[in-house]
Each structure stands twice: as C-alpha cells, then as structure tokens.
C-alpha cells in the first residue's frame, strides 16, 4: 500500500479522481446558475438550500474545498517533479505542436489562470457569504441571492474576467477530462465515445457559465 501512495501512477490516479469530482461539481454549479435565467424564485430557493443545508454546508463544502486544494497542490507537485525529470538542458528546437495539442502541453498555465479566478471568485462570492452568515450573523433572507449575483455581473470588467477565466477552464477540460480517464486506466473500445462526450462537456459547461454572465450583463 505504501508503494501505491508514493508512486507516480498513484499520484496521477489521485489527480484524476479529484478532477472527476470537480467536473461533477461544475455540473451542479452550472445547473443552479442556469435557474437564474429562467426564474428568480427558483434560483433563490436552490441557492438558499445550498447555503443553509447542514449536509451541504458542513460536509459537502469542506470536501469540495479539500478537492480543490488537493487538485492544485498535486498539480504543482507533479509539475515540479516533471521539470526536474526534464533537467536543465532544454531542446534548442522543439516542435511540440507536431505531436500534441496546446491544451495538453499547457495544463499548468490554464490551471494557474483558473486558480487566479477561484481566488477572485472566493473574494467576490464566498467570503462575503461567510461574512454575512457567520461574522455579521445577519438574518436569513431567502430572496437575497438573485440580486446579489446579478449585481456582480453589472460590472463589465468582472464579466470580462469571468469570460476569460471560463475560456481557460474550457481549454483545461478539453485535455483534462479525457486525461483523467487514461490516468485511471480506462482506455478501451468506448474511449472514442467518452472522448466525444468529454469534449462536448468541456465546451458546453464553460459556455453556459459565460452565457449566464453575459445574459445578466445585458439584462440589467
């Protein structure tokens, strides 16, 4: 078992597991955000449930935070190990585009862009929410969520940052989703079908996040 936890393959397996968990979380997140397009009340009900349900607040939320932190920390550890494996001498001429995609070669940079966005996102949404609930201990207002969110999308700079961040997320997913399956040893006759689904997911989900932000910006 110690071999499993210290080996390169196990580290990649753990990275893949955390990635699939975060991919599932994105689906939940975009589903709730989408409600804001169709119904203010439905969005408020869903947000109030997510923000007050003890199971989500005290079990799922910490698991999510651990998942996010693990994925980033392990990503940086693997990057450092890989740089060490490459060594100090780099190729004078290296034609990476001849045999691999830009996304696959630059996961660390798309990941860094996403990390930066998560910091902004936490400062924008999560920290004020914690302050509201646990510092100022303000009364529960089940109808406040929609206006709080829409207000954030009135600022064109914030919308711009949001759009760019989700483009990076799409690029990250376009390689990362299928890569997770390969790291877990799943490469078989269904791989091509998986790949098509993963590509669709990687474009549609970030695309929906972008659409929601732009919709609220123009729907002021």
């Amino acid at each position: 078992m110690s071999g499993l936890l210290s080996s390169s393959i196990a580290r990649k397996f753990a990275m893949a597991l955390s990635a699939l968990f975060l991919i599932f979380f994105l689906l939940m997140h975009v589903s709730i955000n989408l409600l804001s397009i169709f119904s203010e009340d439905a969005f408020n009900v869903a947000s109030h449930f997510m923000g007050t349900n003890p199971l989500i607040q005290f079990l799922m939320q910490p698991i999510l935070i651990i998942g996010v932190v693990f994925h980033f920390v392990m990503g940086f550890i693997l990057e450092l190990k890989n740089r060490k494996a490459v060594g100090v001498h780099k190729y004078v001429k290296n034609n990476g585009a001849a045999n691999s995609t830009w996304m696959s070669r630059n996961m660390i940079y798309s990941g860094l862009a996403i990390l930066l966005f998560i910091v902004i996102h936490f400062l924008d949404f999560w920290i004020p929410e914690l302050k509201y609930k646990y510092v100022e201990v303000l009364p529960e207002e089940p109808t406040r969520y929609y206006h709080e969110m829409v207000e954030k999308f009135h600022n064109p700079i914030k919308v711009g940052v949001y759009v760019v961040a989700f483009v990076f997320l799409a690029l990250h997913l376009l390689h990362g989703f299928m890569s997770a399956f390969q790291s877990m040893g799943l490469n078989n006759k269904y791989t091509k079908t998986f790949e098509r689904c993963a590509k669709a997911y990687s474009i549609v989900i970030p695309g929906l996040f972008i659409f929601i932000a732009i919709f609220h910006y123009f729907n002021q």
């Binding site: 390169s8 890989n82 494996a85 990476g96 045999n99 691999s100 696959s104 390689h175 890569s179 790291s183």
Partner: peptide, 12 residues
C-alpha cells in the same frame, strides 16, 4: 523519469 500527462506525443 517524469509523470505522464497524457499529451499523446509519445504515441505519435
């Protein structure tokens, strides 16, 4: 040796 990030360059 480094970790595989599944770029697929090796196969090509």
């Amino acid at each position: 040796f480094g970790n595989c990030t599944n770029t697929g360059a090796c196969e090509i």
